[in-house]
Write a protein that binds this DNA or RNA. Structure first.
Lengths: 162, 162
DNA sequence: TACTAGTGAGTTGTGCGCAATTGAATTGTG
DNA sequence: CACAATTCAATTGCGCACAACTCACTAGTA
């Protein structure tokens, strides 16, 4: 019932329409996650850990705060994640001598060496998606704009409560 | 270092490029999650619970297996989720008399009544995204194609191991 | 009829994500 | 200088996602 595949504007259709968009996003993220899980198996990394290593490979040394800004994650997620990377021998955590509140993360030799193995990951993933550069750029643009608007919407929502 | 924002094809750039695409997806999903968390606060639902209720409102009665197919989730995720919805008084779980292995999920009166409150959710979310129908359709199409390719890629990857 | 697949939910364990809180270190201000 | 406010990381608690496993039930077969 209420099978209107085109542009309807009643409440039921809106439910269905929105369901499609956010659900599609949700599914794509999880499908991507499965692909990366497979591609990262040899490296012994999960996808969020891989993102953290990417950031560290680029920046050499990062505070937990800065890393959290780059990955859009808070210490509640990063602290245990970084502890696992430290246990795996990939990173070192040390309190900053300039500001004892801050914890600086840097790669170990093993962590830096892992970058060589990681270079084949994006090519493998890109090949499996079958998307060309144009499609990826287009998708990336849409997602970036969407995230921007959602962030300001969330910010505005929070502001409304003040 | 390795700051090449255009189309490079060396390993470092690919790392960066792929980082952008999957990371953008990841971020958009989480930004969406934050928006829904806010919009669903009054209903007392999380986003995955909301998806489950959407499916149940559409289909009236579903086995856990069928619901899992619709939401692309397995019993490991659905069992505790449905137990929470049952505790909240929104759904009923009962074993099928035809096949005692199967568990049928249906909405209670309260669960069905919640649909009325839920009708305002998609409009609110759509308004906050600021995306028009064209953009949403475009994004949905890209995501659907991406998920399709990723799924077959994952399937092929699994097949390769056989 | 017994015996073996196979199927459907549930459970356990691990990791991510987020809200809320805690505690130590720093900064700002009187 | 002393005291309040802020900042940063860590911790706790909850829910989702997924892999691996268990167990009851069903179906297929000798």
């Amino acid at each position: 019932m209420t099978e209107t595949p085109t542009t309807g504007t009643n409440a039921g259709d809106l439910l269905r329409l929105e369901h499609q968009v956010c659900f599609a996003l949700h599914n794509a993220t999880r499908a991507f996650g499965a692909l990366y899980r497979d591609a990262l198996k040899d490296l012994g990394l999960t996808y969020p850990q891989y993102l953290a290593m990417l950031a560290l490979w680029e920046h050499d040394e990062l505070s937990v705060k800065r890393l959290g800004e780059l990955l859009r994650l808070d210490s509640g997620t990063l602290s245990p994640l970084l502890k696992r990377l430290e246990t795996a021998g990939l990173v070192i955590r040390e309190r900053s001598p300039l500001d004892e509140r801050s914890v600086l993360i840097s790669t170990t030799a093993a962590g830096a060496a892992l970058r060589e193995q990681a270079t084949r990951v994006p090519a493998e993933v890109a090949a499996r998606t079958g998307f060309d550069l144009d499609e990826m750029r287009q998708l990336r643009g849409l997602l970036a704009r969407l995230t921007d608007r959602l962030d300001t919407a969330n910010g505005a929502g929070a502001a409304q409560e003040c």
